[in-house]
């Protein structure tokens, strides 16, 4: 599906993203195991280093910049585990992708009257 017309504002998680985000997603997936969650919470930077994340990616993770994590190849299904360890509603992550406030996102995208 690599040669087809791209769909507007819709990044497909293809080989390019998969390769780019490999270490980030691997780190994130590891948070499915409790000991890794403890290590992440105890010393986040050291934990990210142990997965060989580059500075740009580390900054994105440590600042919980979801939009940037996706730009760097993060796949939502993996990086959602960061939002489990450091609770963040998925709607806030969606809003960050859309570049909107959570309130605007809920009204304009999800059709809710209010947050």
């Amino acid at each position: 599906m690599s040669n087809n017309t791209p769909i507007a504002q819709t990044p497909l998680f293809d080989r390019k993203a998969s390769i780019r985000g490999y270490k980030l997603n691997k780190m994130a997936m590891s948070l499915g195991e409790a000991p890794n969650r403890i290590a992440f919470l105890a010393d986040e930077e050291a934990f990210l280093d142990s997965y060989g994340l580059d500075d740009e990616t580390k900054t994105a993770v440590m600042s919980r910049n979801w939009h940037e994590m996706v730009r760097l190849g993060g796949n939502l299904f993996f990086i959602l585990k960061i939002s489990a360890v450091d609770p963040t509603p998925i709607i806030a992550i969606g809003a960050a992708q859309a570049g909107m406030s959570v309130e605007d996102f809920m009204v304009q995208r999800l059709g809710k009257k209010n947050g």
């Binding site: 769909i7 507007a8 504002q9 819709t10 990044p11 998680f13 996706v70 796949n75 939502l76 998925i90 992550i93 969606g94 809003a95 992708q97 859309a98 570049g99 996102f105 304009q108 995208r109 999800l110 059709g111």
Partner: peptide, 11 residues
């Protein structure tokens, strides 16, 4: 549903 990209929240 769409979770990622600028079109996130698409329904």
């Amino acid at each position: 549903h769409q979770l990622q990209g600028a079109r996130a929240g698409f329904l």
